[in-house]
């Protein structure tokens, strides 16, 4: 079973994402911000990170850059999942090493399609 780390400061979003991903046979861990997510990666590296952008303490982009800079990490697939829906943000995320990008609001179909595209399903 593949492990997905769901990073979002909203409890509701984490819950919705968890339900969808569990149905798609993923094991789920949750983190509430980038710092929390980085610590989760150090403990137990997920196969994929579903990553919000705007969060307190450490935002999604900063988290992504930190992960991609770590030579000692087995690099996970990173899928942004954010309300930022303009081309500038999308480009920035992809240039920083994100594999896919979901614009909120999302549903099961979108998550499934994106996870298929990055080869996780």
């Amino acid at each position: 079973m593949k492990l997905c780390l769901v990073v979002d400061d909203s409890k509701v979003i984490r819950k919705v994402a968890r339900r969808i991903l569990e149905e798609l046979s993923f094991e789920i861990e949750e983190a509430v911000d980038g710092q929390d997510a980085l610590e989760a990666c150090e403990r137990n590296m997920p196969d994929v990170v579903l990553l919000d952008w705007n969060m307190p303490v450490m935002d999604g982009l900063e988290f992504l850059k930190s992960v991609r800079a770590r030579a000692d990490f087995t690099q996970p697939v990173v899928v942004f999942c954010t309300t930022e829906n303009d081309m500038a943000h999308i480009r920035t995320a992809i240039e920083a090493g994100a594999d896919e990008y979901i614009m909120k609001p999302f549903d099961r179909e979108i998550i499934e399609a994106k996870f298929v595209q990055v080869g996780l399903i």
Binding site: I94, E100, I110, K114
Partner: peptide, 14 residues
Amino acid sequence: QFEVQRGLPIQLLI
């Protein structure tokens, strides 16, 4: 936004 997320890889959207 919904339609471009169903099946279209983000690189192709860009």
